[in-house]
């Protein structure tokens, strides 16, 4: 059992995109705020704080979930992946990010960090989702700019590419379209 008093400053340690990070916060602080304000990882966005919009979606121990519905103290000791960790080691875009840019799939980009994290999880699933399953996997993300069409096309394209590569080279290590933190 761990017990923290209400205004106590709690040490929280997470592995953020492969780097050990720590900070202090009250038990009530939302993980979204902790990431943005304490750790300075402002790539994760906040659009509603009730779980509806999906902008704050991150991966905790690999699982895509809402950081606005998680307390920072709950993430202590966990491995967190955010949009900042997606690009390739040399800083260039990963396959999925590239596909979004090529297809003009984003406009203001505010929703994108959350969508990318859900897609990152999706691309690691085996079997990969079928085309018709993809909208259902993304239905928890609101985008107010794009009307989703190009976004879905980019995601489908990436999934298809990964599937094609794996079929061609079944022996090689799974390629996932996103950089593994």
């Amino acid at each position: 059992m761990k017990r923290w008093k209400q205004s106590e400053l709690v040490p929280v340690q997470v592995e953020l995109n492969g780097v050990q990070r720590r900070g202090l916060c009250e038990p009530r602080v939302l993980l979204s705020d902790f990431l943005r304000d304490t750790l300075g990882a402002t790539g994760t966005h906040v659009g509603c704080e009730t779980g509806e919009c999906g902008a704050c979606t991150i991966r905790v121990d690999g699982v895509a979930q809402r950081s606005c519905l998680t307390l920072a103290v709950q993430a202590d000791g966990r491995c967190i992946e955010t949009v900042e960790g997606l690009a390739q080691a040399d800083g260039s875009l990963c396959e999925l990010q590239h596909a979004l840019r090529e297809r003009f799939a984003l406009q203001c980009g505010f929703c994108i960090p959350g969508i990318l994290m859900t897609c990152a999880e999706m691309l690691k699933r085996r079997p990969l989702p079928e085309d018709e399953q993809i909208p259902g996997l993304l239905a928890g993300h609101l985008c107010r700019c794009t009307g989703y069409t190009d976004l879905l096309a980019a995601v489908r394209h990436t999934v298809a590419e990964v599937r094609r590569r794996e079929a061609a080279h079944p022996a090689s290590a799974p390629s996932v379209g996103v950089h593994d933190a």
Partner: peptide
């Protein structure tokens, strides 16, 4: 790089896609 931008793509996107937006 493997995934450089094609002609006509948006100059805004790389930063937005990498969480480096400045909202």
């Amino acid at each position: 790089s493997r995934f450089g931008p094609s002609a006509g793509t948006r100059v805004e996107d790389a930063a937005l896609l990498c969480g480096r937006g400045q909202f």
